[in-house]
Design a protein around this nucleic acid. Structure first.
Lengths: 330, 330
DNA sequence: CTGAAAGCGCTAACAG
DNA sequence: CTGTTAGCGCTTTCAG
């Protein structure tokens, strides 16, 4: 069932049918109605592939994340995918398994069949990303590379809020359980939390890098205890949960003996006992915004690649994993 | 950078370049090496769209789930996507938001740009699915429709195991907190658990239908208590967690006063306190198997649509949300 | 083993 | 407003 069949059945030329579907305002009302009616009757659906070949635009986007199963991503993927559909795009979702080589290969593969790519928390080096970004519109999430558009979550502010919260609870010695090497988010947290601690004359140690998983948190337990800190900020909720587990195994109670703050505000943190105090990350808005930015870039390819940068706010959600530093005070 | 540029630079005809990339055994060794070298030097990448247009195969698949953010899906999506890539396919992931209309529309849209679709726990009626499946290879997950391939998780066995476990703990009155209307899984559980209970002369009540969420579990609390059951099987982990929350609010302790079994074995259940006893579902294998089946169907389109059906095993993971029925025995 | 030629289904100037 | 005419980049007979 091609455009030709419809043309014949409707007694018009193929170009008229084409216009009826892609530029209906160029067709006389009567003709349009007839063509559409015939097309519907015949069950005609334009072939997207042929369309893509002539126009050079696929209306497909790529979304690359490090681990689909990490609870941080699903809300972002969901929002991105849903918003893309509203704008008439479909999205390929791909998972790098936290592997830099897979990440690069994936970008290369996807590049051949999409109009643009959203890269969430890429682990690749700046220059590699910049080079790949020369061929294809990119939008980064939680990563800054000169010359590329980005959607950032204000994790620096979130980390500062966490320090402030812990300081107010009387903690005079904090530790940061860092994320994986190459993580922009982790670097931001470190800088911001470090500064916030320094401003208050609070001692601040860093443990890591660590895998961004529960296991990463468990593994970091000994090192955290060695610092002697009484308040800990973890790279994300998963790490925080793992850490709490590790502490539990050593009879260190949270929040009685140690306060722990997570980052992300995932379901996992809400369900954990103690319920996690955490920095809420705007994952769904980030997904939507990234797609919006990307489509904007794609659809105005004539102009210079617009280097837009949006920062989304974070906030602190106080729950049960943090408490005052001095047990006797409670 | 097209096939023509490479042909010219290598001093061969375009068809030779084409063969070098899609049927290299048809090209003399020397020629092949030269063509590939030139192509690499020029940074040539075959245009997938053009390829798809001539071959009629996109090497793209669709994966439709009801809610990406439901923790049941991410491992399945991850496995499906990763396995598809190994086989040279990319996958569009789409979310129906538990809406039947969206589901149908999505299938129609995707149909135009993929070789086949994996439908996970669809909510559409059998006849609608069967009709849509006439146009395009489908593989269903956790749903049976005559004439279509399916990957099933043996939740019936899982439910029976749960009943057995509860029976052994001395529970003489069980309740099932059912899932949403239209759910094949829920229907399976109900039948299997009902039978297993009857076999043991155990009283068995059903509460529902309920939303497949934490909130659904909370909402069901009162009805569950009204049954008087001391052992409960919930539609999934989320519902179980909600139920435990609801019970907690009414000072009913789990597992002291009531035992609760979930289904899925998601992170959520593991993190919950008490840690959830649950029926483990093979989500990752299901994703892989579904894609495997789909590709097989796609790549042998010449023969009749093979109606394969695979059932994957489930198992019971006993943790802390179940205990013996008689408190004095502990 | 390689070249020539005919499209795949559609869009996009260009005429009229 | 509609028809004509070239392709988009590639695969795939069919010859040689």
């Amino acid at each position: 069932m091609t455009i030709r069949d419809v043309a014949q059945a409707a007694g018009v030329h193929v170009s008229t049918v084409s216009r009826a579907f892609s530029a209906s305002h160029l067709v006389k009302r009567e003709t349009l109605d007839r063509v559409l009616a015939v097309a519907a009757e015949l069950g005609y659906q334009p072939n997207e592939t042929a369309r893509a070949l002539t126009t050079g635009r696929t209306r497909n986007l790529g979304l690359i994340v490090s681990d689909i199963a990490n609870p941080f991503y699903p809300p972002l993927i969901k929002a991105a995918q849903s918003y893309a559909r509203v704008r008439g795009y479909q999205v390929f979702v791909a998972d790098t398994d936290e592997d830099v080589r897979t990440e690069e290969e994936l970008i290369r593969t996807l590049a051949r069949q999409v109009d643009g790519v959203v890269l969430v928390s890429p682990r690749l080096a700046n220059d590699v990303i910049a080079r790949l970004g020369g061929d294809l519109p990119f939008v980064l999430v939680n990563r800054q590379v000169p010359g590329l558009s980005a959607v950032l979550m204000d994790v620096a502010h979130g980390a500062a809020l966490a320090v402030e919260h812990l300081a107010e609870l009387g903690h005079g010695h904090l530790a940061l359980v860092a994320g994986p090497r190459g993580s922009w988010t982790s670097a931001q947290m470190r800088r911001a939390a470090g500064r916030a601690a320094a401003d208050r004359g609070i001692r601040f140690d860093v443990v890591g890098p660590n895998a961004p998983t529960e296991h990463g948190g468990i593994t970091a337990t000994a090192a955290v205890l060695r610092t002697g800190a009484t308040g800990v900020i973890a790279y994300n909720d998963l790490v925080a949960i793992g850490l709490i587990e590790g502490l539990h195994d050593r009879d260190v109670r949270v929040p009685r003996d140690l306060s722990v703050v997570g980052v992300d505000d995932t379901v996992a943190g809400r369900l954990n006992r103690p319920r996690l105090t955490t920095v809420a990350m705007p994952t769904a808005p980030a997904g939507r915004t990234a797609v919006d930015l990307l489509i904007q870039t794609v659809e105005t390819a004539d102009t210079r690649p617009s280097t837009a940068q949006t920062t989304l706010a974070t906030s602190l959600v106080v729950r049960d994993s943090t408490a005052t530093a001095d047990p006797s005070a409670r």
